[in-house]
């Protein structure tokens, strides 16, 4: 049912072309319809799909495809190239402050994977970058959010800064940054509560945390299974708090993950990491070309 890859999608059109000597503009149009299908089925946002298909069509109607003996392959290659480019070409590293501590904020919708990713990221920072991170429990709303982060801290043997749930997240973050300076933690990772992008009061809270000390990174944590709404979410968070990068979680599932493209297209912010599991070592750098293949089902 769902999730036919682009190659299968194009089969019908390719068969038709095979009998003919060359590819017509009409053939390209038909192929583009399949490309559109495949992308929407992969959860790429409709508006982003439109732009994308337009761009690819322009290239496809050009010289490359029309004369080619394997037009199907050619189209797939163009689509893949353009997708990879759109997704940000190169791997994007973490930005550190030259006046430590580096402050990293984790933001996003409810259940996206912020708390889990906070733990994973701290693990990467210690292991790969030799940092001394401090985890900050600034979610005072979700039941047992503080305990969740504390449990992860214990698993990792890393300190968690927590002041319970009776103090405002802004105050918790402020004291945490002070504490980090005193204790020589060079990175502060702030786990914030999940919130809807349309919740003005809670979005204001993020702005207030942001205003304490200009964060070096604000990571929007996004569930890779997200559908068409990904653009609204990414755009709203970006406009309100100014994200610097994206972490795409739960990519160990079988979703095509078209949200990645949507987010990248509307925010132009790099996807920096992908979550590949629930365990604390399941965070990997993001590779645009792999993601392109995945979205296309190849």
């Amino acid at each position: 049912m769902a999730f036919e890859g682009l190659a299968e999608r194009l089969q019908g059109t390719i068969q038709k072309i095979k009998g003919k000597g060359k590819v017509s503009e009409q053939d390209v149009k038909e192929m583009m319809r399949e490309v559109r299908f495949a992308l929407i089925e992969a959860d790429v946002n409709l508006k982003v799909v439109k732009e994308f298909v337009k761009k690819v069509s322009e290239r496809a109607v050009g010289i490359d495809v029309m004369k080619s003996l394997t037009p199907g392959q050619q189209v797939i290659k163009i689509v893949q190239d353009e997708l990879t480019t759109l997704m940000g070409g190169e791997q994007s590293p973490i930005k550190f402050s030259n006046r430590p501590p580096t402050v990293i904020m984790m933001v996003g919708l409810q259940g996206a994977g912020k708390t889990t990713t906070t733990g994973k990221l701290a693990n990467v920072l210690r292991k790969k970058y030799n940092k001394k991170p401090l985890l900050v429990a600034a979610d005072v709303y979700r039941p047992a959010a503080v305990q969740q982060l504390q449990t992860l801290g214990k698993q990792l043997s890393l300190p968690v800064f927590a002041l319970g749930t009776d103090i405002s997240p802004v105050e918790i973050a402020r004291q945490a940054i002070e504490h980090a300076k005193e204790e020589h933690h060079d990175v502060v990772l702030i786990d914030t509560a999940g919130r809807l992008h349309i919740d003005e009061q809670l979005m204001q809270e993020l702005k207030d945390i942001r205003a304490l000390k200009e964060p070096d990174e604000v990571f929007l944590v996004v569930d890779s299974m997200t559908g068409q709404d990904a653009v609204n979410v990414a755009q709203s968070f970006n406009e309100a708090v100014g994200i610097t990068g994206v972490v795409l979680t739960k990519l160990d599932g079988d979703t095509r993950g078209g949200a990645a493209l949507s987010i990248r297209a509307v925010t132009e912010k790099p996807i920096k990491f992908v979550g590949m599991g629930e365990k604390m070592d399941a965070l990997e750098p993001f590779y645009p070309d792999r993601m392109a293949s995945r979205i296309l089902g190849m």
Binding site: A2, F3, D43, D223, M225, T226, G227, D229, T255, R256
Partner: peptide, 11 residues
Amino acid sequence: LDATTGQNALV
């Protein structure tokens, strides 16, 4: 099922 989920919800 999370309403934010796309086509993967069917699977």
